[in-house]
Amino acid sequence: MNETSVKKWNKSTVADFLINNAIYVVLLLLVIVIICMDSSFLSVQNFKFIITQASTRVILALGVAGLLVLAGTDLSVGRMVGLSAVISASLLQAPDYARRIFPDMPQLPVFAPILLAILCTAIASTISGYVIAKFKVTAFIVTLSMQLIIYGVASLYYDYTGGSPIANLDERFKYFAQGSLRLGPVEIPFLVIYAAITVAIVWFIWNKTRLGKNMFAVGGNEEAATVSGVNVIRTIVLVSMLAGILYGFAGSLEVARTGSATNNIGNGYELDAIAACVVGGVSFNGGVGSIAGVVSGVLMFQVINYGLNYVDVSPYIQYIIKGLIIVIAVAIDTRKYIKKK
C-alpha cells in the first residue's frame, strides 16, 4: 500500500467516523457552549438534578426502546404518562385535605393506585401491540390513534375530578418519589434506585430470556423469525405490554415527583424518549439496540434539556435544537442501515 492510498484511507476512515458519530459531536459542542455561557452549570447539585429528572425518562425510554427494536414506534407515551398520573394522583391525595376528589374513600396503600395506573396503561399498550401484530397496521398510525384515545379518556376523567390541578398529594406518595437513601456521606434519590432496578430487569429480559431473543429476531427480519418458529404476534404483544407497564410506573413517579397532575402532564415526552433511544444507538430499522445505549442517550439528552433551560434559552429555540438532533440521529441510523445492506 503506497503513501497516497494510505492518506486516502485515513481521510475516508476519519470522514466515516465523524459522520457516524456526528450526533455526539453536536451534543458535545452544545454542552461546551452551555458551559461557556454559564460555568456554574458544572456543579454537583446540577448533576444530582439531572440524574434525578432523567430517572423517569430512562424508564419511559426503556419501554419505547423495545418497540423500536421491533422496528416500530410509540407516539402515545406522553399521554400514557398523563393517564397514569391523574389516576394515581386522584387516589392518593392527603387524607386531611378538605377538597379531596374522593372524600369518603379511605386512605389507600401507596402501591394500590400505582398498580391500578400501571394496569390501565398496560392494557392500552397491549391493545396497540395486538392491533399492530394481528392486523399489520403501521405502528405510527396505531399509536397515534391510541395517543388521541388516551388523551380523551384522561381528559374526561380529569374533568370528572373537577378540572383543576390535582394537588395536595399524600405525603407517603411524595416521599415514595422524592425521598432518598443515605449511605454515609452519599445521598441516593429513590428515583435513581427505581431507575437502576428497572434497567437491571429490562437488561435481563433483553439479554437472558427467550422474549428478548425473539424481540431482536422479529425486529431484524420478521419473515425469517416466523420461519424459525418465533411467535411474532405474541412477541409484539408482550413487548408492548412491558412498555405499558413501564409507562404507568414512570407516570406515577413523575406526578409524585412534581407534586401535582393535570391531563396535560407528559405532553411531548414521547419525542424525548424516542430521540434519546435513537441517540443511544437504537435503530429505527429494528433489530439493533442496547440498554447501555438507551441509558446514555437519555442522560445526554437530559443534560442538553437541563442545560438549555439553565442558561435561559428560549423554549422555541429548544424545539428547533431537539428537532435537529432527531433528524441528525435518524439520518445517521439510516446511513448505517443502507451501508450494511
Rank of each mutant, 00 (worst) to 15 (best):
K340T: 04
I332M: 02
Y151E: 15
L148W: 03
S5Q: 14
I317V: 15
A122L: 13
G266S: 09
N263T: 07
G82T: 04
Q107Y: 10
N264F: 14
P113M: 01
A250R: 01
K174H: 04
G229I: 09
S240F: 15
A98R: 15
G162V: 14
D104S: 11
N207A: 04
P315G: 08
W9A: 10
T143E: 15
L18F: 11
L253F: 11
V311I: 02
S43P: 12
G323K: 13
V25S: 12
N2E: 13
A65W: 00
S76K: 10
G280V: 03
I304F: 03
D170P: 00
N46E: 10
L242S: 01
E171R: 11
T226I: 10
Y160E: 13
I118E: 00
V313G: 08
R182K: 14
N221P: 00
T235D: 12
L92Y: 01
I197N: 02
I35Y: 12
W206Q: 01
L75D: 08
K213R: 15
A276Q: 12
A196V: 09
I87F: 14
T209R: 03
V26T: 08
M241A: 11
T198Q: 02
N264W: 10
I127L: 13
N20Q: 11
M1P: 13
R210G: 05
G179K: 08
V142H: 09
R257N: 03
S290C: 07
Y269C: 04
S290M: 05
M146Q: 06
Y247L: 09
I59L: 12
K208P: 00
K174T: 15
L169M: 11
R182S: 14
I50F: 05
F204M: 06
L83F: 13
N207W: 13
